[in-house]
Structures are given as structure tokens and as C-alpha cells.
Nucleic acid binder design. Structure first.
Length: 203
DNA sequence: CCCGTGATTTAT
DNA sequence: TAAATCACGGGG
């Protein structure tokens, strides 16, 4: 039986956690008990109060981003562009608001249901290949914000691998979609994905 | 390329 | 109070 990742796994800096999550399995149980699951293949690190691209830059703390201030292992889901949701895993420690954005999954269970949630997807590699796509496929929204991935019955991350992926299997790039942020932060290499994996997002 | 769509943030 | 922004996706 695969084990759920425990609190100590998440209590690390966002960069370390972003890499350690690659290859692990995100699991979501639907209200009727079906498992929707996929391997995490792409992540981005958001470092906290000093990160100009983070929602918590300079200590911003509002009703929207409150969950980023929670202990590591909580799920931060936010709404953007009037129609999309994105999901993050809180890193570090309580009151240090750093997080890892989940950018893409390789779907492994419940593909037919995910397809129903994402009628526009034309192939399996389009199902979860983007932060808002994965939320739509798993039906994550603001109701899921604040979920404790270490203690919730219906959402958690399973340990697939004990050791993290070797560096040569991880591709490192600048984060996407943060052009408005200060250049120094825009160029930082904080996006990570499994090399050659066809389920990563396009850009 | 462009646009939808609306909460949140920032500027008056 | 008003305007701009936005960790995006889908369709030309």
C-alpha cells in the first residue's frame, strides 16, 4: 500500500519541495468515492515575502492568500482570470508563506471522468498539462482551499518514490506567466519538470 | 494573434 | 470609486 506523504516531507524550502514532489502522486477522491489521480510532472516554487512574483510578496496577507501562511502540507487554491483555478502546496513552516504551484500531472486514474471535466482536451497529454487544466480535471476550486493534505480523507499525495529524481531527469527553467514581475525574479530558474515528459505544459 | 471573465490590487 | 492587473486556456 502506498503511503501518504507526511508533514515533515512538506516542511522544506519551496525549491527543495518543488523538486521532491516530481514523480509523486496527487490523489483526489470524488464524492462518490472514485479515485482521480496523477503523477506530478511539473512544478514552480514561490519563495514567499521576498519573491516579487508571489501572492505573499512583502507580507501581503488577505482573505485570498491566507492559506499560504498555514503550516506546510496545506493546499492553497486561488481563482484568477475570471474563470480559472490554480492549486499550490504550502511549503516551509507556519507563517513563512512559501508554496509550490502544481503545473502539470500525468493522469493515471479516472481518465474518463477527467475527460468529462475537460471536454476541450483532445488527448491524454492535454488533460492536466497546465495549472488550471489540472484543477478542472480534478474539479478543484476555492472550496478545496485550506485542505490539509496530511490529514484529509479525500485528498492527499502518495509516496511513489523514496528518493527524489536525479538532477539529470529534472529540467529547470524560468517560471511562466510572470512577465509583469520585476525582471530579477522573472528570470530566476524556479520551474521544474520531468525531462522529456509529454504531460508538461506547453510554453 | 486575441479574447473571456471577475476577484483582487493599486491608483486616483 | 475607478482602473489596471492577473502564477490561464481556447480558438484563429
Amino acid at each position: 500500500m502506498p503511503e501518504r506523504l507526511p508533514r515533515r516531507f512538506f516542511r522544506r524550502d519551496a525549491i527543495t519541495l518543488a523538486k521532491a514532489l516530481l514523480g509523486q502522486r496527487l490523489v483526489r477522491l470524488t464524492p462518490d468515492g472514485q479515485r482521480l489521480a496523477g503523477l506530478i510532472v511539473e512544478t514552480e516554487a514561490y519563495l514567499g515575502v521576498e519573491d516579487a512574483a508571489a501572492h505573499t510578496y512583502r507580507g501581503r496577507r488577505t482573505a485570498r492568500n491566507e492559506t499560504m501562511y498555514a503550516d506546510a502540507g496545506y493546499l492553497y487554491v486561488y481563482f484568477t482570470y475570471g474563470m480559472h483555478h490554480c492549486a499550490n502546496v504550502v511549503a516551509s513552516a507556519e507563517d513563512d508563506p512559501a508554496a509550490v504551484l502544481l503545473r502539470a500531472l500525468e493522469p493515471t486514474e479516472g481518465l474518463a471522468t477527467m475527460q468529462q471535466h475537460r471536454p476541450a482536451a483532445r488527448r491524454d497529454t492535454d488533460l492536466c498539462s497546465g495549472p488550471a487544466k489540472l484543477c478542472a480535471a480534478l474539479q478543484l476550486d476555492r472550496n478545496d482551499d485550506g485542505t490539509d493534505l496530511c490529514n484529509s480523507y479525500d485528498m492527499f499525495i502518495e509516496q511513489v518514490r523514496q528518493r527524489r529524481l536525479p538532477e539529470h531527469r529534472i529540467t529547470t527553467k524560468p517560471r511562466v506567466g510572470i512577465d509583469a514581475a520585476e525582471p530579477a525574479w522573472r528570470d530566476q530558474l524556479l520551474r521544474f519538470y520531468i525531462a522529456e515528459n509529454p504531460h508538461v505544459s506547453k510554453p
